[in-house]
Design a protein around this nucleic acid. Structure first.
Lengths: 102, 102
DNA sequence: CGGCATCCTTCTGGATACTG
DNA sequence: CAGTATCCAGAAGGATGCCG
């Protein structure tokens, strides 16, 4: 099942949110993402980013500054998830209305 | 973030897969879903279905047969997730190609 | 058939401190 | 700044058995 393949890559509370952030600002530094994504810890961010890099969803670029700067961005391939995110976000808005309505 | 609201409802390895199954066969029994969804245990299926029922994504119908028969189906509201699933599934197919290509 | 109860193991993820 | 390392609690999830 294709859905299952996709989910393998997107498991965890955070990956989808991280991708959503990287959709918006196309380059973003570690500590910025740390602030953007609601309650994530540096450990989790580090872990999730590493997994996503291995899965070729994002690209990591180290700049030779002092101190070090690191950029993360979606790969061309990862950008294909944007429409999924959009869909999900639209549904999330609907969902919030539904819940609040009660 | 709307994405986060959506994810609250869809957490766990299985929910997305279960919805995908219910997209395809619009009514489905417990033990059928158990076979459809790859490696899920009855405990997990039971738990996930209950959560999704509480979130109004699916509807549970008990038929008065001997022994009991139970149908699950997507609510009108849950069906709005179909486009998300479709997107995800398309991406999953791409993803599989990408991985295999290496 | 469609679950629930129990036990047990693994994974998830937070807090804090430390490194180059 | 961008992580790593360690410790630890709780949640997720598998196996098995029982029940109406």
């Amino acid at each position: 099942m294709a859905v299952h393949d996709a989910m393998d890559v997107l498991t965890g509370k955070w990956k989808i949110s991280i991708i959503a952030v990287l959709c918006y600002h196309n380059k973003r530094r570690f500590s910025d993402i740390l602030k953007d994504v609601n309650g994530i810890s540096n450990k989790m961010l580090s872990k999730e980013l590493k997994e996503m890099e291995q899965n070729k969803l994002i690209k990591r670029t180290v700049l030779d500054t002092q101190p070090v700067t690191v950029h993360y961005e979606l790969t061309e391939y990862g950008q294909k998830l944007q429409s999924v995110i959009k869909n999900l976000s639209d549904w999330g808005i609907e969902h919030r209305k539904e819940i609040m309505g009660k």
